[in-house]
Amino acid sequence: MHKHIERAVAEIGTVLLGKEVQVRLALCCLFARGHLLIEDLPGMGKTTLSNALAKVLGLDYKRVQFTSDLLPADILGVSVFNRDTTQFEFIPGPIFTQVLLADEINRTTPKSQSALLEAMEEGQVTIEGKTRELPAPFFVIATQNPSTQSGTYPLPESQLDRFLMRLSLGYPDREAERKLLMGEDSRKKLSRLQAVMSIQDLIAIQTAVDDVHCSDNLLDYVQRLVEHSRNHTDFVDGLSPRGALAIMRCAKTWAFMSGRGHVVPEDVQMILPSVVEHRLSTSANALVGSHGMSHKLMEEIAVIG
């Protein structure tokens, strides 16, 4: 299984140069059965990463470009009157897929954003009073521009909370950028990407993650972190139990990806910024405190206590 993981990382690395940690975190999010939000300025490779992820994992994927005039029916699907059968027939929207790439999710109105809500949490959608199951696995990989940019509708907190991780890619380092500039068109490369694992492999990894051991000492550490975020006035809102669960799930997955059968504090620290940053800060200061709050939290809590 670890072979698959390493190959996936290497494969994605061919299109997204010099971002191994972010690639690993993104994979970690998916292996932990979570939805991923990639936030960065335009042109940083958000879409490339999301496309590559879907392709490499061998999943069936659809892409929706979110615009300000997008309607919920555009995502979920719509019933159309069939003249032959004289009945309304349901045309499934792009959400009926294994991976939904929601590009620039904060460009659309809250109404359309919330159409994603039920789908993300429950793996099902209700259209015209009828509940329809989504295929499994079902991932949403959304990208968004920083909310300070013009023409954005910031995601509501409730919806942010539904993303297991929020990643930022950041500028590439000099060497990686040089390679990028010298290399061929990334679109071509993207089309050449191959799936390195099957759905069975993916499910096997997801199940194996559940068996990773969490000792009492580690749970103590996580609880100290969570409690601190709730008690300390520097944090506007503390971490919710869902947030705490998210930390545990990601830490377990990270430990598994690192080839360990048990979680160590380093795993928690590794995934913590991506998992808690978007939960700790309100949407209003989302970018202001980027990477600030989670690091503050880590620094204030002793690992061994």
């Binding site: 160590v264 504090p265 380093e266 620290q269 880590m298 620094e299 204030e300 809590i301 002793a302 690992v303 061994i304």
Partner: peptide, 9 residues
């Protein structure tokens, strides 16, 4: 060792 630093790190 900073208190917040993990033993492996």
């Amino acid at each position: 060792r900073d208190a917040s630093e993990g033993p492996i790190d």
